[in-house]
């Protein structure tokens, strides 16, 4: 990732581990609180992290979640080893999901994950190779500035 970060943390997420799904997001939230960042910003990023984490739990074998804190933004990369997403534009639309009933019974898998991540971040990039995995890169700005594009 680019530039010199002020702070960096890497967490691992296990696929199919519903018992612990959500713990990475709450750990990151606690870290961001310790850094004294604004609570509205922490909330937005934590929601994005939680949705990204649950996507890994539901669909992938494993992933790393990297958090990098810069002076003017916080950047997160979630890189998984999993089935990948064949049609990213389709998956970005609300209600579009390939989740199973078991996933939905956990309160997720309604096709709101990626839209929720987009709604709560200032930048989002999704790259995926079918059969290899998916990488999400997103960021929230700690100081106001126009969103790219």
């Amino acid at each position: 990732m680019d530039g010199e970060s002020l702070y960096r943390e890497t967490l691992r997420i296990k696929g199919d581990d519903f018992e612990h799904g959500g713990e990475a997001a709450t750990q990151v939230k606690a870290l961001l609180k310790q850094l004294g960042l604004p609570s509205t910003l922490i909330r937005r990023l934590s929601i994005a992290n939680f949705e990204a984490e649950m996507n890994v739990v539901m669909y992938a074998r494993e992933a790393t979640l990297d958090v990098l804190v810069y002076p003017d933004l916080i950047r997160v990369e979630v890189a998984d080893r999993g089935p990948g997403i064949a049609d990213i534009a389709w998956a970005m639309q609300e209600g579009h999901s390939t989740a199973t009933e078991a996933m939905r019974a956990r309160g997720f898998g309604a096709g709101l994950g990626l839209p929720n991540i987009q709604r709560n971040t200032d930048e989002l990039e999704v790259k995926s190779d079918v059969g290899v995995g998916t990488t999400l890169r997103y960021a929230v700005y700690t100081t106001p500035r126009p969103k790219p594009g």
Partner: peptide
Amino acid sequence: VTGLASPQMVHTAEVAD
């Protein structure tokens, strides 16, 4: 208020304040 009793409902409440 939820009918979900999994750990994720607690994580949801935590991350969404």
